[in-house]
Structures are given as C-alpha cells and as structure tokens.
Simulated assay, not measured.
Amino acid sequence: MSASITGNDVIRVEGAPAPVGAYPHARRVGDLLFLSGIGSRVPGSNDIAADFEGQCRQVFANVRTVLEASGSRFEDLVDVTVFLTDMKNHFATYNRLYAEAFAGVDACRTTVEVNALPTAIAIELKCVAHVAS
C-alpha cells in the first residue's frame, strides 16, 4: 500500500477504498492524524459484505490500511467515532468485534446511530491518531 502525501499533509492511500466525495483519506496536522470517515467497502471493487460482521472486519482493515500508510498504527489511535445505521441490531456484534480488533488500544470511543451513510454500508469510523515525529 502506498500513500500520496502532499505538501499540506493531505494523505490519499492507494490501498484504501476511494473516497465518495471531495476529501482525502487523512490529513496530518502536527503530530495528529485525522482520518476522514472510512467505511466498509472493499478496496478496488467497492463491494460490501452481505453480513454485518463482514462489514465490521472490513472497516477495521480499511482503517488499519490508512493508518499504516500514513505512518501510524492501531495502538496510536486516540479517538474513534463509530457510526452505525442500526444500533439495536448491530451494537453487540460491533462491540464484540471491536474489542477483538482493538485489543490493547486505549482510544476514546463514541458510537452513534445515524439514519444512513453515503453508500449502502452499515458502519463507518472516524478516527484521530498520534503520529511519531
């Protein structure tokens, strides 16, 4: 995976799903990395897993891809905001899989329900991470 980092620290990652609007995958400001909302589409194909568990696993992988291409890692996350389209039916599954994928990560976390996301996905993450200087 490669990242294109411009002079103003705007980051676009080749191995991540393409943004669905006019925004980069991430932006670095000082020693903080701000990730745009990242969904569960499969990079390259934009396919979406048929089941919610598959979407969770894919969105976590997509976040990891952007973090690593930007010089950061899961352990460097400081804040994660999660958007679910069906809190009642999906929170327990998401919470279990998050605990597995983010084991040892002490990031703050907020989970909110939204009516819809820009594509047919059921989960999206917005993250802030620390990047070593």
Rank of each mutant, 00 (worst) to 15 (best):
E100Q: 15
R109T: 10
N115P: 04
A116S: 14
T81W: 01
K88N: 08
M1T: 13
G71D: 08
E75G: 09
D47I: 02
L84G: 04
A50Q: 12
R109F: 03
P118T: 08
T110N: 09
I123E: 01
S2V: 14
A120W: 00
D86W: 12
G7A: 14
E53Y: 04
L67G: 02
S45E: 07
T81R: 12
P24G: 02
A101L: 01
T6K: 09
E100W: 04
A103D: 13
I5D: 00
V13W: 01
R109I: 15
R73S: 15
A101I: 07
C108Q: 14
C56S: 08
A122H: 10
A99I: 06
A16L: 06
T81D: 07
P19N: 03
G7M: 11
S45I: 09
D76E: 13
C56M: 10
A22S: 10
E75Q: 14
C127F: 03
Y23F: 15
G37S: 11
V20K: 05
N89T: 14
N89E: 12
D51S: 11
R109S: 07
V66M: 05
H25G: 05
Y23P: 01
G37N: 07
E100K: 13
D106N: 14
V105T: 13
D106L: 11
A3R: 01
S70P: 05
F60A: 15
G30I: 09
E100N: 11
N62G: 02
R96M: 10
F91L: 15
V13L: 04
I5Y: 00
E100C: 08
I11D: 01
D51Y: 07
V105E: 00
D47F: 04
A16C: 09
A122M: 06
